[in-house]
Computed example of a mutant assay.
Amino acid sequence: MVRRPFLALPLVAAGTGLLLLAQAPAAFAAQATVGLGTATSFAVLAGTTVTNVGPSVISGDLGVSPGSAVTGFPPGSVINGTMHVSDAVALQAQNDVTTAYNDAAGRTPVVDKTSQDLGGQTLVSGVYQAANAMALTGTVTLDAQGDPNAVFIFQAGSTLITASSSTVALIGGAQACNVFWKVGSSATLGTSTTFVGSILALTSATLQTGASVQGRVLARNGQVSLDTNTITRPGCNVVPTSTASPSSGPTSGTTATATAGGTDVPGGDTSTGPDNPNGTGGPDGPRGPNAPRVPVGHPHTGTVAPSTGPAGLGWLTAGALALTGAAGAAVLGSRSGRRRTRSRHSAGQ
């Protein structure tokens, strides 16, 4: 019986390559955005009261429900929005905040940040969880790595507290509309903090003097306390899909489909594109700055999808190299086998 040990090498290499390729999707997964529903139009929403000291500027809707107390306006002001005090709009927005809170709380897989200060870290899109309090001292940088639809979700088991002059910085095309902070109790932003993202707090939210938010401050059961703050509801630049759909005529400017659970996107314009807030939009109807939307291709469910980000590309490259090695080993083995066969024939003659 003739042994053929050369067959083992390609089999092992092929098996390794397939294993690496199978792991690639799990190494890097993209999150869908968190749908805010009718709460998309709000910059501030509280459960009991909204209090303010100083000339705070709220760009977007301000509301309270089921409570009915709003104090400090003026000197505070609401621009690009409406004040909803214990009305049906605020009630529905609170219901949608509850849905969004539960969605954000249930997202997986998570990167454990328990007992770690976020300051000084650069984070790519994903879900980051602290089992108890979450803290930020200094600057945390969120890097979308060129993907404007990259979603960042933070899950604080209890409080979220930022030190004075802390910053949430966005790079690589990251957008404030795709950053969400689920807070298990109360959020406190220290003086002069520059914050980004939508805060979904179970209890209350306090912004100390001079803190600013490019996002939303949404408290389910308690109050929102303000002190000379600027809160700006974020817009979202929608990246259209590459698949063209039939059209009855030529259009200029990009429009996106509005859905009930999306993020706030400035309306389209037939001459200047999607970033003109006064645009008339496309054939689906008017597009205003308060229209709730989700980025194209991103359902507002918790389903994760495979991605070929840096980690995924590493696995794919390793798998491809292993499979290439397997093919090479198989060729060498085949040649070796033919040489042995010819040798035996020569010896028999």
Score class of each variant (00 low, 15 high):
219 A>P: 07
216 R>G: 09
199 I>L: 14
181 W>E: 06
208 Q>A: 05
199 I>R: 03
170 L>M: 02
165 S>Q: 12
150 A>V: 06
176 A>K: 01
230 T>S: 05
240 P>K: 02
154 F>I: 08
187 A>T: 10
232 T>Q: 13
197 G>F: 12
241 T>M: 10
226 L>S: 06
182 K>Y: 08
202 L>G: 01
167 T>N: 14
228 T>D: 13
173 G>V: 11
163 A>F: 08
213 V>F: 08
158 S>W: 07
213 V>P: 06
177 C>F: 10
199 I>Q: 01
166 S>D: 09
242 S>H: 04
156 A>V: 00
181 W>P: 04
167 T>H: 14
230 T>V: 13
244 A>C: 05
200 L>C: 05
189 L>P: 05
221 N>A: 13
170 L>W: 10
219 A>T: 00
206 T>W: 07
184 G>H: 11
235 G>R: 04
207 L>A: 01
182 K>I: 02
149 N>L: 04
181 W>G: 03
177 C>T: 10
171 I>Q: 15
221 N>S: 15
198 S>V: 01
171 I>H: 08
201 A>D: 03
242 S>I: 12
185 S>T: 14
237 N>W: 10
175 Q>Y: 10
154 F>N: 05
224 V>A: 00
236 C>W: 05
160 L>F: 15
212 S>V: 12
197 G>R: 12
220 R>A: 13
220 R>D: 13
225 S>M: 05
225 S>T: 15
206 T>L: 04
153 I>M: 06
231 I>N: 05
224 V>W: 00
192 S>F: 10
163 A>D: 14
152 F>P: 06
196 V>W: 07
224 V>N: 04
163 A>G: 13
184 G>Q: 13
242 S>F: 11
166 S>M: 11
168 V>T: 11
199 I>P: 01
165 S>E: 11
217 V>Q: 05
179 V>T: 09
207 L>Q: 07
149 N>V: 04
186 S>F: 00
186 S>A: 08
189 L>S: 02
225 S>P: 00
240 P>M: 10
179 V>H: 05
237 N>G: 13
226 L>G: 07
238 V>M: 12
195 F>K: 03
203 T>L: 08
230 T>F: 03
205 A>Y: 01
171 I>T: 15
172 G>H: 09
177 C>M: 08
241 T>V: 10
242 S>M: 06
178 N>D: 13
194 T>D: 11
195 F>D: 07
194 T>Q: 15
186 S>I: 00
160 L>T: 04
236 C>Y: 11
